[in-house]
């Protein structure tokens, strides 16, 4: 058989093999497949990890932190030390309001907290920013209303990457030879990271189009309604963005208008809302000490944000403990 024919046959076989490996292992749980019945997917995402952390904890959490990956680093100890409430960080990547509603339902199924900190991203209200498929594959799916279905296509071409092959092999290794290393620690806290130095890298939204989703605003209203009914103090705030990132939004006319609408909507939906997406508030925090990248605050910045929220909460409650 000639070289070219062999080359194409081998390439096809290998492509199918690697694709099959990623699909069958499903290392990021995007597809909800577990052909080999793995007990753990070491690289699995926060929805699954945090669900089990919360579910298996013997603590009764009176404060919950919700938000996207930008809220991962909010340390629960800051809340505990300031207002003496056991706190759980239930932030999950790539989240939208439906994630928060589902998480709230999960939290309430176990215990009614006293305070909820809810961080909302600019992207979270963008109707072109899809609901993450991982929500539908995690145990949180049990808290979804019956009409809520997946919005992402089954096959995501971003899934077929070298990293996915590596992580699929890692899942095999962890299940057969090693120990799973979760990136989330007790109380949903994030693993320790080395500090970064230098300029903050700007990561502008992956969605080129931006349109505020009315449906998602309705979900936020529902969250506020549930909290009111259950007498939970809901503290909503916009996710802090780096100074450079905010400057880009400000200088891009179409984004600037959408951003203003985003803030106005949040302000009208929530009784207690703080906006951190303002150039004035962020001008003193323009370095890697405060941001891992332009949308992810560092541990230090996360502490600052939490402290500000807690101070206003304490002020509001006339310095009495909650």
């Amino acid at each position: 058989m000639n070289f070219i024919r062999l080359f194409f046959i081998f390439s096809t076989i290998l492509t199918l093999l690697f694709t099959g490996l990623v699909i069958s292992v499903d290392p990021y749980m995007k597809l909800g497949i577990n052909v080999f019945g793995f007990k753990t997917k070491a690289v699995a995402q926060s929805r699954e990890n945090k669900y089990y952390l919360y579910e298996s904890s013997k603590k009764q959490y009176d404060a919950i932190i919700m938000g996207s990956s930008a809220a991962h680093r909010y340390p629960t100890s800051t809340v505990k030390n300031t207002i003496n409430l056991e706190t759980f960080n239930y932030a999950v990547q790539h989240s939208t309001p439906i994630d928060y509603l589902v998480i709230l339902k999960h939290v309430l199924s176990k215990h009614r907290p006293k305070v909820i900190f809810l961080q909302i991203d600019f992207d979270a209200l963008n109707q072109f920013y899809d609901v993450d498929n991982r929500l539908f594959n995690s145990p949180l799916k049990n808290f979804l209303a019956s009409h809520e279905t997946r919005t992402k296509p089954l096959f995501d071409h971003d899934y077929f990457t070298l990293a996915a092959i590596r992580d699929s092999l890692r899942v095999f290794y962890v299940n057969y030879f090693g120990k799973a290393r979760h990136i989330y620690l007790e109380d949903g806290n994030y693993r320790k990271e080395l500090p970064l130095k230098g300029k903050v890298k700007t990561r502008i939204s992956s969605s080129k189009k931006y349109q505020i989703s009315n449906e998602r605003i309705e979900v936020l209203k529902e969250i506020q309604k549930i909290c009111d009914k259950k007498q939970i103090e809901l503290i909503a705030f916009s996710a802090p963005l780096s100074f450079e990132h905010l400057k880009i939004i400000k200088n891009t006319l179409s984004l600037k208008e959408k951003h203003q609408k985003f803030i106005t909507h949040l302000d009208s939906v929530f009784r207690n809302f703080t906006n951190f997406q303002s150039l004035n508030k962020m001008k003193d925090y323009n370095s890697s000490e405060y941001f891992r990248d332009s949308t992810h605050p560092s541990l230090k910045m996360s502490e600052i944000i939490l402290q500000q929220l807690l101070t206003s909460l304490k002020d509001k409650n006339n310095n009495e403990s909650i």
Partner: peptide, 23 residues
């Protein structure tokens, strides 16, 4: 030399590259 083992090796590298093209 256009041998079978060369075709197999080049296919392996090529497929790895294809999976690396997302970046």
């Amino acid at each position: 030399k256009p041998q079978t083992k060369t075709a197999l090796f080049m296919s392996f590298i090529f497929v790895l590259c294809l999976f690396g093209l997302n970046r």
